[in-house]
Simulated scan of single mutants.
Amino acid sequence: MRFAKIAFLAVALTLTAGCTSYKQVPYLQNPEVVNNYGKEIPLYDAKIMPKDLLSITVNTTDALASAPFNLTVQTSINAAQENTNTTSSPSLQQYLVDNEGEIDFPVLGRLKVGGLTKTETENMIREKLTPYLKETPIVNVRMANYKISVLGEVASPGTFTVSNEKVNVLEALAMAGDMTVYGMRTNVKLIREDADGKREIKELDLTQSDLILSPYFYLRQNDILYVTPNKAKAKSSDIGSTTSLWFSATSILVSIASLLVNILR
């Protein structure tokens, strides 16, 4: 009877440990936190930051009138055959946002775009172009270097370009092939630098559904996600190094023993 109680207790503890570890695996647990959230969640819209590279086009029915606002640059192209001259092909001028959040736009001069969204920038340029054009132009602004990086315990770490200028934490992990079995879902570090150069490291718990309500759910350009390894990864690394050390020590001891046996004969 006593043995049965001990066995039952052992099984219960094993099951409890299994449940505890399982709770650290699934993403977005307790979805009712989000489903019952009473407030409206605003749509995310990326803001322009220093060192962003902008592609800006201005279009009207009169191509000649809008041409001064669509500068082009010559891009070198090497010919395939030898002993031929290098030709060039025009491409649209891109604008690098400086540390003050400004760009130098043709005719209009210096424009403050830092901190504005894409739509706000388009509206500002459209308004400033009114005196120069007979009709309301179509202005299109795109961020040409919207990139995020994912490192640590993921299947395919790397830097990824986001074409639609909108990506959340889960989508970023999907780009990197999701976490490995060694990834700590309760401690994913987000490294971010704001427009003033201030850096912060935010710890995210991907097992909690309220992550969706967090201001850190959507990534900004140049954000870095680092997936922390769990204890199992650390132990496996420890075992590997310890095993190598034991093999080396054993090999040395065998060599010394063989040497002593040969000397004492």
Rank of each mutant, 00 (worst) to 15 (best):
F3A: 05
A4S: 05
A4T: 05
K5A: 10
L9I: 14
A10E: 09
T16E: 09
A17T: 11
T20M: 12
L28P: 02
N30W: 02
N30P: 02
E32A: 07
Y37G: 06
Y37W: 11
I41H: 01
P42A: 13
M49K: 09
T57G: 03
T61P: 00
L64W: 05
S66P: 01
F69I: 00
F69Y: 14
I77L: 05
N83L: 13
T84E: 14
N85W: 02
N85T: 09
T86G: 04
S91K: 09
Q94Y: 00
Y95V: 01
G101M: 15
G101P: 14
G101D: 13
V107T: 13
V107P: 08
V113D: 10
G114N: 07
L116Q: 08
T117C: 08
T119S: 06
T119G: 01
E120L: 08
E120K: 15
N123E: 10
N123T: 11
N123D: 12
M124S: 04
M124F: 04
I125V: 15
I125A: 09
I125R: 15
I125F: 12
E127A: 13
L129Q: 05
L133P: 04
L133W: 01
K134A: 10
K134M: 14
E135W: 03
E135R: 11
P137V: 15
V139Y: 07
N140R: 08
V141F: 01
R142N: 15
Y146F: 14
S149V: 14
V150R: 04
A155S: 01
G158H: 15
T159M: 12
T161P: 06
S163M: 02
S163P: 01
V167Y: 00
L170W: 06
E171R: 14
E171K: 12
A174I: 03
M175N: 11
D178S: 08
M179R: 12
Y182K: 10
Y182L: 06
M184V: 01
M184A: 13
T186Y: 05
K189D: 10
K189L: 15
L190A: 03
I191T: 03
E193W: 10
A195Q: 14
I201G: 05
D205A: 01
L206F: 05
L206M: 10
T207D: 07
Q208M: 08
Q208N: 12
S209T: 08
D210K: 11
L211I: 12
L219P: 03
R220D: 13
R220E: 13
R220V: 09
T228V: 12
T228H: 11
T228F: 03
K233Y: 08
K235C: 03
D238G: 04
G240A: 03
S241M: 07
W246K: 04
W246H: 01
F247V: 05
S248R: 07
S248M: 02
A249T: 04
T250F: 11
I252H: 03
L253I: 10
I256E: 03
S258Q: 09
L259M: 12
L264Q: 11
